[in-house]
Design a protein around this nucleic acid. Sequence first.
DNA 1: CCCTATAATTTAGTTAGGCTAACTAATTAG
DNA 2: CTAATTAGTTAGCCTAACTAAATTATAGGG
Lengths: 153, 153
Amino acid sequence: MTRKSRPPGRGRTATISVPVAGRLHSAAIHLLRRLRQSDKASGISAPRLSALSVLVYAGPRTLGQLADTEQVRPPTMTRLVQAMEAEGYIKRIPDPHDKRVTVLQATAKARKLLDKARSLRVSTVEEMMKNLTAAEIKTLDAAAKLIEDMAKR
Amino acid sequence: MTRKSRPPGRGRTATISVPVAGRLHSAAIHLLRRLRQSDKASGISAPRLSALSVLVYAGPRTLGQLADTEQVRPPTMTRLVQAMEAEGYIKRIPDPHDKRVTVLQATAKARKLLDKARSLRVSTVEEMMKNLTAAEIKTLDAAAKLIEDMAKR
DNA sequence: CCCTATAATTTAGTTAGGCTAACTAATTAG
DNA sequence: CTAATTAGTTAGCCTAACTAAATTATAGGG
């Protein structure tokens, strides 16, 4: 589902979207307020969880790349990585072509942790959805796909 | 728009909702990741922003109540409040019935700050939505309303 | 009036995340 | 073969958020 480039003549679309953006924003805030609670149960801090999910869901990368995507300086990432390495969530793999580089890879333990955290959050959402009609669920599904698409770039 | 209590015979709704909950969860995460960036621009830390928005959007309450809702110990909240009081975001109002208690109230400056933060985030969402069709926007709007309803309890 | 409970603060200390500056080691360019 | 660049680490410092324990002041029942 790739976003089609919109040709001229889209009319009042931008104007219509303004209040919707506000409502969508509020909805996201309130949904996430709920989810944050299940997040704490994972027992890992937000910066670590964030860096680790990059490694788990987007694959291995170097420390510098990870620092860039997480928008921190390399020394900060060094420490985050050291802590998570000591806890068995990250493995360092030396780059054979460039000995200065270490590629970081999430371990099975990390994947298990994130899967657990995810399923906690997902069941919170399920619980919230349990009284919806089939049509309402369809609407949410369509919206989820649209949002993914929008967030992709 | 109050959630209607669903009578028996809703059939496979719960089963259908399972993968949708997962997709909705992912969508929310990715949307949030975007919004966190605009949040930084507000220049206030996450714990403070969170506590302050309780006061702004849910109204005044005592320090102890605020500590409870934010899930921190009273000393932690004392410090958060002291900092925000010094910056002019919170006003303390002595409780006439119980002199041990101070009721915390957000100032106009706080409201202005949160409005600014909100509009930053909303324009991020608008920007993301700018290539959607009218039908897609309608879907998002319906979903936003459903989510608000779900999150409400 | 005393005793206990409660609201908030102070005290004293920890932990985590962030930074810059200075360093080592490896790579690449002249 | 130097010189400059790049990846990552170390060291040192700062701030924010958090905690438990002790303290202060008020409330309220017996």
